[in-house]
Design a protein around this nucleic acid. Structure first.
Lengths: 161, 161
DNA sequence: GATGAAAATATGTTACT
DNA sequence: AGTAACATATTTTCATC
């Protein structure tokens, strides 16, 4: 993979702010011709720097009035146990995202549910029913905010132009 | 806000999978003429059902080789304390997202950092230096997976067509 | 509301610097 | 690698159903 130069970082920062920016507008923002800009965006996608693009939705409008974070500890920490748990839980329609952590809790599962009864059913039917689960704690999510600016770090030599 | 009908849900599900889908392709997927489809997408944006669209980036390619989840407890739980903490922390370039929870921990902060030293500096300089912080626990994020399918629930009467 | 055709815009190629 | 020009495709408007 090629190192990212400053123009690449500008492209990424702009798309991070608004991924539906047209190529023409993006090119103007970063001071490139549209064709050159398009070429770079494609390269960033091919190189796997850009991994995809997802919609931020208003969960309440979809009928999910409660969001919760479910912390899970497993009884066994080998790879197979993890993978089987994640593969069973991730496809559930309530699951928004899933973190595998190194800490007291092995996993954090961010879910959206209709109401408290739905939350309880989800925890029983999808989480605690699994025999690899040793401990579960559920907390309401009052607020969830995603950064609208791309993480930016001091460049090291391998990234610099 | 108008209730979402089945076509709206199909549009959202398709865009959730790939927000860069062209309007033409989206229209074909949901069985509408491109113009009708565009009209609905605009309405969903205006109604705030679609809140935005963000890029999923390979953090390693940006030079962030470590991701961590920082759990924070505050000494005071009034609104002002929360807001001032969130407004101070959220703009930090390392912060990817921020959860306000009702539970033992008040906040979870998902961060991307260059290395362990950077993580330590971030925790000291941005989190523990603040006097409203009473407890901090940091865990490495080994894996972070976002659902690629839109949460779907049984429709209630207010959402049904 | 939805459609289809026309006008405006954007994309993607190619040749050139 | 970047630019400009061109052909193709898409978006968006609008009159109509």
């Amino acid at each position: 993979m090629r190192a990212l130069d400053n123009t690449d970082l500008q492209i990424l920062a702009n798309l991070f702010r608004d991924a539906r920016l047209s190529n023409k507008d993006l090119a103007r923002e970063v001071g490139l011709a549209p064709s050159s800009c398009l070429e770079r965006v494609k390269r960033l996608q091919n190189d796997g720097v850009i991994q995809g693009c997802s919609l931020k939705l208003n969960m309440n409008a979809l009928g999910a009035h409660i969001q919760a974070m479910i912390a899970v500890r497993l009884s066994n920490h080998n790879r197979e146990t993890f993978e089987s748990f994640m593969q069973a839980v991730q496809p559930a329609p309530e699951v928004l995202s899933l973190y595998h952590l190194g800490g007291d809790n092995d996993l954090l599962i961010h879910v959206a549910v209709v109401d408290t009864q739905h939350l309880r059913d989800f925890v029983f039917n999808t989480i605690t029913c699994r025999n690899e689960v040793s401990h579960v704690e559920t907390a309401l999510v009052y607020d969830y905010r995603q950064s609208d600016t791309m993480p930016k770090f001091v460049l090291n030599s391998s990234q610099a132009v």
